[in-house]
Design a protein around this nucleic acid. Structure first.
Lengths: 237, 237
DNA sequence: TCGGGAACTTGATGTAAATCAAGGCACGAT
DNA sequence: ATCGTGCCTTGATTTACATCAAGTTCCCGA
């Protein structure tokens, strides 16, 4: 079923390109190529120079780095409608991470030439790009905050609450966006630790788990869950 | 000696504003105010909405977040000529970190209005902003990489090598940009651990330390230093 | 229906770094 | 001199999480 994609239409529906004029969409589309990527295939390795950025149309892409010892750390999971690689494109430096398809995926590659032209013609577009990069930066800061001053349990809870979305209390059901192995890496945990934490949340009656399907019994209670046996006392700054 | 600052001149010398035309510099300067901040004073708390961004003229600013338990994590140390807060300004969301002066400091606050005007008039300026944010994003990714898959010793070595600058081998001398307490937090370590690591580097003859003054005896040897008693074996992905 | 393997769980053990607890040491005020 | 008061170091102990090592369960293909 190699359904042909209407590149212009897909581009026009991306939040980033919303208010762009037709001529500019066409211009972008001219520099855009479609990429199919089978599950497990690597799109680019760490160190690559990017001549544009990518939009996920279908499937899921994992961004990760690998340590000299061969361990792997997932930085980001990118799903349909989301994009990646903009920052690397603007920096004109080797990409700090690798990109790999977690499922059979379909991507668009948008050449930087068209993006720069759109920036020149439409300063509102430039602002949207700036806002987009800023949001991404904000997400990374949150990651740093999570890694450096939250416990593993708190990180898992935060992740679940984020997936659950609606901050209103009550019970919510949803699916993990990837295998537990990948989720664990994203949260800077080993699969074993993630398994144990989920187990303890289940035992506390806060959630139930069937495969990737999670039911949060009550958001409010989950967000207040505190694990620490010896709460360390605050120190004035 | 409250020497008055020529705001226009300072702005024109910032890398970010290099090729801006005089009229635009004047426009920016009109929306810019000067801020003096005594050592230890807090510029803004986490959660503040920023109506512009800041440039450090003199002194040093620490960006950090605090955990509910009162612990503090330094995200960034900002020195003369560097700026911060752009991303928060573009996002129009509460700032995720707090900002505090580590020394008596002098800052400029540049209103977003002027920045947006400059973006509208000069797409090259927009591109420079995009590149700047991209670089910052890159720095954060490096931080995440360091925190999540480097040991504490490797983080310290990486930090020292970065301060030492010139990748050419040989001996280099420099000063730590802040107290060891602050450096430790920036590297996600306790002061005790940093002290022990520096001690072990000294014992290995790789560096010498007198207060904040560091001498790296030989860059090459320091960068190769490996501490791990049981190097874990690689696992294929 | 069966078999094989990936994904996940569970338990025992190990360890890097944090925490707790005293000291040294410099430097400025009295 | 002397007394403090931060800043840093050093040592003993604890701990959260990783690692190692078996099991389960589930799923998919033959």
């Amino acid at each position: 079923m190699g359904k042909q994609i209407d590149i212009g239409r897909v581009l026009a529906n991306l939040p980033l390109f919303q208010q762009l004029r037709e001529g500019e969409i066409a211009n972008l589309a001219a520099g855009t190529r479609e990429i199919g990527l089978g599950k497990g295939r690597i799109l680019f390795q760490k160190g690559t120079l990017l001549e544009g950025f990518y939009v996920v149309v279908r499937g899921q892409i994992k961004l990760a780095f690998t340590s000299p010892q061969g361990n792997e750390k997932v930085v980001s999971l990118v799903g349909p409608g989301q994009s990646f690689g903009e920052a690397v494109m603007f920096m004109e430096r080797p990409c700090p991470v690798m990109a790999q398809a977690l499922e059979d995926s379909r991507l668009l590659h948008i050449a930087k030439q068209g993006i720069f032209a759109a920036i020149d013609h439409d300063s509102a577009f430039a602002r949207r790009l700036l806002a987009g990069l800023s949001m991404r930066l904000h997400g990374l800061i949150q990651d740093v905050e999570n890694y450096s001053l939250r416990s593993s349990t708190q990180r898992v809870i935060g992740f679940l609450l984020q997936l659950a979305g609606t901050p209103g209390s009550g019970s919510v059901i949803f699916e993990l966006p990837a295998s537990k192995h990948v989720i664990a890496s994203r949260l800077n945990l080993t699969p074993e630790t993630l398994s144990r934490i989920l187990h303890s949340l289940i035992e506390s009656g806060l959630i139930t788990v069937h495969g990737r399907r999670i039911v949060v019994q009550e958001m409010a209670r989950l967000s207040q869950f505190d694990d620490l046996p010896h709460p360390p006392c605050a120190k004035g700054g």
